[in-house]
Design a protein around this nucleic acid. Sequence first.
DNA 1: GACGTTTTTTGAACCGGTCCGAATCGTGAT
DNA 2: ATCACGATTCGGACCGGTTCAAAAAACGTC
Lengths: 352, 352
Amino acid sequence: MRRAVTLLDVARAANVSKTTVSNVFSWPERVRPALRARIEAVARELHYAGPDPKGRMLSSGKVNAIGVVPIGNFGITLFFTHEYGNAFLGGVAHTCEERGVGLSLVSGRANEWGINDALVDGFIFESAEQIDLIEPARRRRLPVVVSGVAGPDITSITIENRKGAREVTRHLLELGHRRFVIASVMWQFVPPVFHPPTGAPRQFVAVGPPILERMAGVADALAEFGLSFDDMPVMEGCGTPEEEAAFGNGPGMALDLAPEATAVIALNDGVALNIIEQAKKRGLSVPRDLSVVGFDDVAGAARSEPPLTTVHHSAFENGRLAASLLLDGGPPRHVVMPVKLVVRASTAPPRK
Amino acid sequence: MRRAVTLLDVARAANVSKTTVSNVFSWPERVRPALRARIEAVARELHYAGPDPKGRMLSSGKVNAIGVVPIGNFGITLFFTHEYGNAFLGGVAHTCEERGVGLSLVSGRANEWGINDALVDGFIFESAEQIDLIEPARRRRLPVVVSGVAGPDITSITIENRKGAREVTRHLLELGHRRFVIASVMWQFVPPVFHPPTGAPRQFVAVGPPILERMAGVADALAEFGLSFDDMPVMEGCGTPEEEAAFGNGPGMALDLAPEATAVIALNDGVALNIIEQAKKRGLSVPRDLSVVGFDDVAGAARSEPPLTTVHHSAFENGRLAASLLLDGGPPRHVVMPVKLVVRASTAPPRK
DNA sequence: GACGTTTTTTGAACCGGTCCGAATCGTGAT
DNA sequence: ATCACGATTCGGACCGGTTCAAAAAACGTC
């Protein structure tokens, strides 16, 4: 493929200045119709495709595109393997489309097309877990929006984790439950850990800020009923096939190690759905023998058997808002997205 | 925000040439350790974030990113509302990640961040339906890969539509079926159309090339058993909620207008699943009263009640391959992806 | 036809780097 | 001390456009 035709080629061929050709394409009304027609003809003859965005970008300094970085130390494939990431990205795409702005997927891993190389005007981070990823973006002096807990000088979007956890726990308490297991999520691939009740605060292995907030919400509700979070067993483990293959199924262990519990408070829906499955395997009927609640209201929550009582929030809306905040610019803001308790059929009063 | 620090600023501050600073970042081994350390210190002091990708891109001419354009005249949101598009994009992302190449989502709609503005080194089109979109990309002299039927000078990936349709139809014929309805897809939003058998080729309203190939495959199998496609009723309609609201449910009409059929050959899984639903509404048991087959093996096909007999192919693999072909470059190629008949529980011998 | 305006067109600077050939520096051998 | 040669560093061109002030052309008026 020979050298591409440039604006200058057209200018020379038409015997006018670069500027005039540029105007023909970017400010047509500025050039006399006759001349414009002549230049357009020349351009067509030379198969000139119009100003190359590369050049335009360089002089304007604007790329007219934003980058989205997936959660954690994973690559962009995560956007397609995780429901949350997918929905979030969908929301970002929605806003980008509305505003006529480009969207680039940027890997959070080093040595890849990443934060340092991406041709974008700003970044959206799907999660705040990796502050070290946010730093390079800020060093590039590009605006950043984080979906998650970030510093005061970074625009962020969080959800009412604490309130949601409080409400769903209160729901169980109001049904009459008093003995719980908390099934937590791990955001690293490590073996599940069971924490028996100690009556004192425990040190958990792999919980991020949002999960801590959810735990705080659970504690709030328990306290309202005179109970203590420290008296409830906590299981850390995700129950993914990979975890099960490597270490055994965390949620299942929760059921085995805390058989006295009448309800499981899972800190996300993935774990909750896993619990339901494991309960069935053990001949327990949900919600007759065991109530289960989750958090997030993923697509599968409504379809599970029984449908899951959980806390709804919208990854799509988060994504939409993240893109809006980024594109609107302005000083750092901190938006908290509302959540809503969704009572379905996985909860019932405890068996007598 | 004041002007960003540039390479030149660092050079001046360190009292060296631009080139040397550039080398410090791009070819560190070329500059003497002592000087390098000094320059790095100056850069740090000035909060220089390293070479701006914009500049690098301009001189190299390479953006190191590719663009993906969704099917048809839709925006990029389609990647998140359509299962096929999502899986396809996931495959593209997978390859991009492997190769350390950026990925941009590009709208197929005019007047948006589109083919003409995207900062990419090449394009992948999720579908060949809109040749007019491919043209501008080629005018920009960027390499293009199309997932679908395209001209001989454009690299394309197609699937064995005809063979798959032939096999799934043969499967029904071997079970003993002889009276069919073909439930076709429409790729435009127009009212469903019923085509009674005429014994002669009919003119369909909204079928694209892949669907035509599938029809040809159905015709092949029928011919092997001495039957003619022209003697089978064809219904065009998708059965989406939007269609149902505006015009009524196409697949349902197929059942009503061709009650003598013992099997429905749906040309994609969406329609097939719709047929199953509509059959249930009419008190028909699948597969006892009616066999149903689809095409594509979407995620829902295995989960439906009964699980759907269909033709498997992988949107993810298509995407992966599309990206590989684009990044590998080379002369136009035309890859045909294999399909595989997946027999599940939606087919059985016709009722006596 | 001369002159003041307004509209078009032009030339040069700039955006932020990379790259290549030439100039300069440092070092070991003579 | 001088020379040759390899290792460093420098200067300037280049990538493909946009932008702005100034020059040139067109237009209207007296």
